[in-house]
Nucleic acid binder design. Structure first.
Lengths: 138, 138
DNA sequence: TCAAATTATCATATTAACATGATAATAACA
DNA sequence: TGTTATTATCATGTTAATATGATAATTTGA
């Protein structure tokens, strides 16, 4: 469903939301904690910074922080720099438009499914992902 | 959502369902009609034959036919040799099991979304895809 | 002002998906 | 029985995603 890269991005942002409220978190901290290749993660975090999902701080005591509150940050914002999960192609068969004579029953049903997926990413926030983590039994 | 390969498979099977009821259809016919590379399509059709979705006939007047009636053939059967859309990983974050303390609200919602997708492929048949093609205005 | 710690960037390697080209195996039929 | 048309298979090439390694730029603080 998601590329490796987008999944890394999600996991990294989630880590920041959980641990980054008092100080910036360094790439290598995250890479170690999440088992993601360090230089690869570095580029992903840089991308997220360019898309204003994160803020980066260089030099000593540097690292990354969330640019916004977790409840303001949708999964879509995190993922679209890598996977464009919103402008996902609607037609299962890759036909340019589904309004021609191929707009069959199944195509309509497929559009519903694709919309469900897109809506999930648009409407779910990082805060939603964290919400229950603490309250469930370990 | 689907790999290029799986999409080719779907389109080829659909073509067979529409045109293959009287005689087998050759690879090059399909490749031309659907704009799919011929040798690549050849391997895809071979795979589908090994998975008993198609039947192949060699030699003169050879080609491919559906192994079953269109209403017996699920999209899942066509796609899983290439994309395993059914045993899709449930956890968005790639965590091995979602029953641990990360089984948050959003994870549950994600599982619903993933199930919706899986169900679509399981329950939609080739016949469903064809159903309305003829009855809609061109 | 310089050393250390960090992100940013450049160059390259690896792997898998996608694709092409050529040949072998098989079946039909003149 | 041999020729032709077809699928099956083997070998190779291309491209994009993933990953690694090295260096530059920036910031902090001694």
């Amino acid at each position: 469903m998601l590329s490796q890269t987008a999944e890394y991005a999600l996991r990294a942002v989630l880590h920041l939301a959980q641990h980054g409220d008092t100080r910036p978190i360094r790439v290598n901290e995250m890479a170690d904690a999440l088992h993601i290749p360090q230089n690869y993660l570095s580029k992903i975090l840089h991308q997220l910074t360019r898309h204003r999902v994160l803020v980066s701080l260089r030099g000593k005591a540097g690292g990354f922080r969330l640019a916004d509150r977790p409840d303001e940050l949708s999964l879509s914002a995190i993922v679209t720099p890598f996977d464009r999960v919103d402008e996902r192609r609607r037609c299962l068969l890759g036909r340019p438009q589904c309004s021609d004579r191929t707009a069959c029953a199944a195509h309509t049903r497929w559009k519903d499914v694709a919309d469900t997926v897109a809506q999930f990413f648009r409407e779910t926030t990082v805060a939603d992902l964290l919400e229950r983590e603490a309250t469930l039994p370990a």
